[in-house]
Nucleic acid binder design. Structure first.
Lengths: 135, 135
DNA sequence: CAGAATTCATGTGTATACTAACAAATATTA
DNA sequence: TAATATTTGTTAGTATACACATGAATTCTG
């Protein structure tokens, strides 16, 4: 007997939904999970072309473009030209972006913690290790 | 130090992406994972209102509407009126829909198997049990 | 060095996914 | 029963997410 509830794709979707709910419940800066990832990555990389940022956050070119556009509209990143390569758009943090990074890290840790709340400390380790292997 | 790669939301996104890739690689009927879930659920429930189908597949009203529309366009489901409640749209399988269900079950099991391939048999059990608790 | 291949960014089209607002039908309750 | 509340379905708006096509710039290669 085939049970939808036992299929990894279906359960992954439900878990992602719950994570998004937890994220949005606490999000004060109006960021989405995707925007959050991109912003944290920009901070980590300093300057970075838009396409490279997409690769480093697992977003295709069309997706990262939209994300960067919205992060710019919200004032967290700014775009510039790359003097060494005229094809590139360089993404970097604004002053506001630099100011919120620490807060974002704290926020991200909280979201992860609340999402994993149903698991014990040891279970979380095991779970994350296995989840990583599925990527 | 905050590592994006250690955050459950980020890894969930990557795992979902890989699952979608596996699903699409094998999908011959042109179904998406979401459409697949809804179709399997319709088969399981027999007749079912559109909104109820959405709840039973964890899709909100706007999403399930689009999914049902596309399943209808592909000829797998048909829509009818509910004589007992004029608000309702009843969703049911077409002949084609009934014919492909067994095939879908086999397909779904294969996708789950390939997605979980990096885990051993015992690990899969443990992993799915923990993943369910996060929903 | 010149042609070919690749990379970067953009745009279009399709498919989730959720919010909010709305109208119609049904159910509840005062 | 009449007023209220809920349910159902639709629509509009925003945000991922991916495939594909295009053009410009750069790199590779013969």
């Amino acid at each position: 007997m085939y049970k939808l509830e036992e299929q990894v794709g279906y359960i992954l979707r439900l878990a992602s939904q719950r994570h998004a709910t937890v994220f949005n419940k606490h999000s004060e800066l109006g960021l989405t999970p995707t925007q959050f990832s991109a912003l944290v990555r920009v901070a980590e990389m300093g300057n970075c072309s838009q396409n490279l940022l997409g690769r480093r956050t697992a977003m295709d070119v069309a997706t990262i473009k939209g994300v960067v556009t919205r992060l710019k509209a919200k004032g967290f990143v700014e775009l510039g030209a790359d003097p060494e390569d005229k094809r590139r758009t360089v993404v970097s943090l604004t002053k506001t972006g630099r100011e919120v990074i620490k807060q974002l890290h704290k926020f991200g840790a909280m979201v992860t913690d609340e999402t994993l709340a149903p698991l014990s400390g040891e279970e979380r380790k095991v779970f994350l290790e296995m989840l990583k292997r599925l990527t």
